[in-house]
Simulated scan of single mutants.
Amino acid sequence: MIRHDTLTVRWLGYATARLSGPETTVYTDPGRYGVLTGDWEPPEGVDTRHPAGPAYDARDGNLVLVTHDHHYDPDGIRRVAAPDATLVVYEGVDAERAGRPPSPEALAEREGYDLIRIGERERVEAAGVPVRSLPAYNDPEGSHTRPDGSVVHPEGFGVGYEFELGGVPVFWPGDSDVLPHHSALDVSLLLANISGSVCMDRHEAASLAADLDPDLVCPIHYDTQAFLAADSKAFAADVASRGVPVVLDEGWT
Rank of each mutant, 00 (worst) to 15 (best):
V66L: 01
P173M: 02
T8V: 13
D186P: 00
L115K: 10
W11N: 06
E91F: 01
P83R: 10
A127V: 05
H50Q: 11
L228Q: 09
R110P: 00
R132M: 02
L189E: 13
T48A: 15
E125D: 07
A240E: 14
G160R: 02
T145W: 08
Q225M: 05
D215K: 11
P169K: 15
L87G: 01
D231M: 07
F171H: 14
V198L: 08
H50I: 06
G160K: 01
G13E: 07
D139K: 04
A52V: 11
S143I: 03
V46D: 06
E23S: 14
D223F: 03
D148Q: 06
A95V: 02
L179K: 12
R59C: 07
R10V: 00
V131M: 06
D69L: 03
R202K: 10
E96Q: 13
G34C: 08
I194V: 14
F163Q: 07
E44T: 09
H182M: 09
R79H: 08
P130T: 04
A210H: 12
P54W: 09
L212A: 08
D175Y: 11
A236H: 12
N193H: 15
T67H: 03
G99Q: 07
P54Q: 09
L189I: 09
V198C: 05
G31W: 02
A136T: 04
D75F: 01
F157H: 14
L248D: 12
S150G: 06
G21R: 11
R59N: 04
V239D: 10
L185C: 09
P104A: 13
V170G: 04
P169F: 15
C199W: 09
A209S: 14
V152N: 12
R78W: 07
P22Y: 14
